[in-house]
């Protein structure tokens, strides 16, 4: 159980609660027993479908009942329905799971059922000339984007919602351009710099854009990214999110000129925030990178700067002092 406060109840209060619960418990057990026995008998009726709705409403984690619900649709309801009807049944199941998600935003099984519904939406009505359209699919996908945005408004770090968002984007009948998704992450980051989920999404979207737009545009856009992340670092130098993103932006094989420029910029921030762990930690990381790009004979000064920072880090961030010591030892005396 996550985030449920412990309350101390007297034995009497506890007994009273259980007694009050008895009726509810009896209904729940009867409904469960009824549905599981219908399932065994392969009862694919509308009645069973409605009972499943009721049970899932009180317990959305009952995965066997979600499975049964899908089997009723596949084996009992869809075969006797027109495509129009199938589209409308799936739309109403999507609505049902929308309200379930509002109450239980982190239940895997609900998100899972949503995916199944979406994947089974028929493409669209036939046009007057008999051609297949994608109308229903497009409409449902657009609705999903809307729903997932509301979920991310409620909790901007919900990883179920972010994973679902990426899933929808990857299967959109006519997908929005990646620049639109980039805009969305900008909006999320600007409303809260410490939303690492949005920075992460940026690290996945930008390469797609850069691949399309060429090297020159990539360089321009990279500079804008440095501006954005610098702004975040100056706003709160203790927030990990922007530092992690900065590390992505630098990458494992940076250009030494760029690397030197960023090191200088972090040194400036450190002079304003002399205790900043993340400034020091990042300086060590980038200086080590720079050392690997520097001829053997010119490394000593940088090494001793790293050792000095590592010693200071062990003081301001004692939880991780063994790590700092280990890196320092690797650098040699």
């Amino acid at each position: 159980m996550h985030g449920v406060k412990r309350t101390r109840q007297s034995r009497e209060a506890e007994e009273a609660r259980k007694l009050k619960e008895q009726a509810k418990l009896k209904d729940y057990l009867l409904l469960t027993e009824d549905l599981l026995s219908r399932k065994k008998k392969k009862d694919w009726s509308k009645e069973a479908f409605d009972l499943a709705t009721k049970l899932l409403h009180s317990n959305p984690e009952f995965y066997t009942i979600w499975n049964y619900r899908r089997n009723i649709l596949i084996n009992g309801i869809f075969p006797s329905s027109s495509v129009e009807e199938i589209n409308s049944i799936l739309s109403s199941d999507l609505s049902l799971t929308t309200s379930a998600l509002k109450a239980h935003p982190k239940v895997y099984w609900i998100w899972n059922h949503r995916r199944w519904c979406l994947e089974n939406v028929p493409p669209g009505p036939s046009s007057p000339t008999g051609e297949q359209t994608q109308g229903w699919r497009q409409k449902n996908w657009e609705r999903e984007m809307y729903v997932v945005e509301r979920m991310l408004d409620a909790d901007a770090r919900n990883f179920h919602a972010w994973n679902y968002r990426r899933y929808i984007l990857s299967l959109f009948p006519t997908p929005p351009p990646p620049t639109q998704e980039l805009k969305y992450t900008t909006h999320k980051i600007e409303s809260n710099f410490s939303n690492f989920s949005a920075w992460h999404q940026r690290s996945k979207i930008l390469p797609l854009i850069w691949e399309k737009e060429g090297k020159e545009r990539e360089e321009e856009m990279r500079e804008l990214e440095f501006d954005l992340v610098r702004n975040a670092l100056y706003t709160d130098p203790n927030d990990q999110s922007a530092w992690l993103y900065h590390r992505w932006l630098i990458g494992p094989h940076p250009d030494p000129i760029l690397l030197t420029r960023e090191i200088t910029s972090i040194q400036e921030l450190l002079s304003e925030q002399p205790d900043s762990k993340w400034c020091m930690e990042s300086l060590v990381h980038y200086t080590l990178l720079l050392i690997s790009l520097t001829p053997e004979t010119e490394r000593e000064e940088m090494k001793s700067e790293c050792r000095r920072l590592l010693a200071e880090l062990a003081g301001v961030d004692p939880c991780r002092k063994n790590r700092y010591q280990e890196i320092s030892e690797r650098l040699g005396v």
Binding site: F159, N163, R166, K204, W248
Partner: peptide, 16 residues
């Protein structure tokens, strides 16, 4: 696998 060394639930997912 992500740039931070971590892994996510599926392709593209944030490290957790």
């Amino acid at each position: 696998k992500n740039f931070d060394g971590g892994f996510g639930a599926c392709i593209g997912a944030e490290s957790h």
